[in-house]
Amino acid sequence: MVFVHGFGCDQQMWRLVAPAFEAEYRVVLLDLVGAGNSDLTAYAPARYSTLAAHAEDVREVLEALDAHEVIFVGHSVSAMIGVLAAAQEPTRFSRLILVGPSPHYLNEAGYPGGFELGDIEELLEAMDSNYLGWSAAFAPVVMDTPDQPALTAELTNSFCRTDPAIARHFARVTFLGDNRADLPGVRTPALILQSARDLIAPLAVGAYVHHQLAGSKLVVLNTSGHCPHVSAPEATVAAMRGYLQETHPLPV
């Protein structure tokens, strides 16, 4: 089971979900090139001008690990990266779990993507204004969570830190790209985990993805926000587990 993070953070986003599957699955976490602890110098803007390059990266990792029957779990933009990877190499993947997927963020005729071009420009502007948050290391954090001491050590590596120029480029690729045409080509069974109130990937978009992906199942979590795996990890884990059980029951 491979977990791929969305835009704006890194693999640490899965910390409340991924451990729940470690007993049953071989769990793989990765940072997309340009994020987290990846080699930032490997981020060549020309190569990463579409999501396909990230999908190739994911497949390369899986091939190096000799992973088969892969359950791909992708959040946000990485949901689409999973769709592309499954289209490129259908035999490698057994199921896709897409958390808050959106194939296209802009409103088009007959497609309610949710945003206008001006909104995306505003996002880029907000990113520029928060340059420090994206780039500089956060000071070591002492967290008031005595029951989760492992958190503290990890936090000193800082969360969701990235290079501002890369974040800006990746934001453009993510929010101005259009991967709607890639959906119908995917035959891998997929679970769409949709937050009931998601500003970034609204319900209508989740329904669209469900409609376009043959053999997909849409589960709407009664949560708010774009990151149910962070805000409602238990519900997310339960929905994932339920889907995995019903599509491929584990021997008891």
Partner: peptide, 25 residues
């Protein structure tokens, strides 16, 4: 809307993971 997008993708996960955010513009 751009600010809200940023908050959803960056601010909110940070809040949930580390318990606070500072100086978001």
């Amino acid at each position: 809307i751009g600010g809200a997008l940023h908050f959803e993708m960056h601010g909110m996960p940070l809040l949930l993971l580390q318990g606070y955010v500072r100086e978001l513009s």
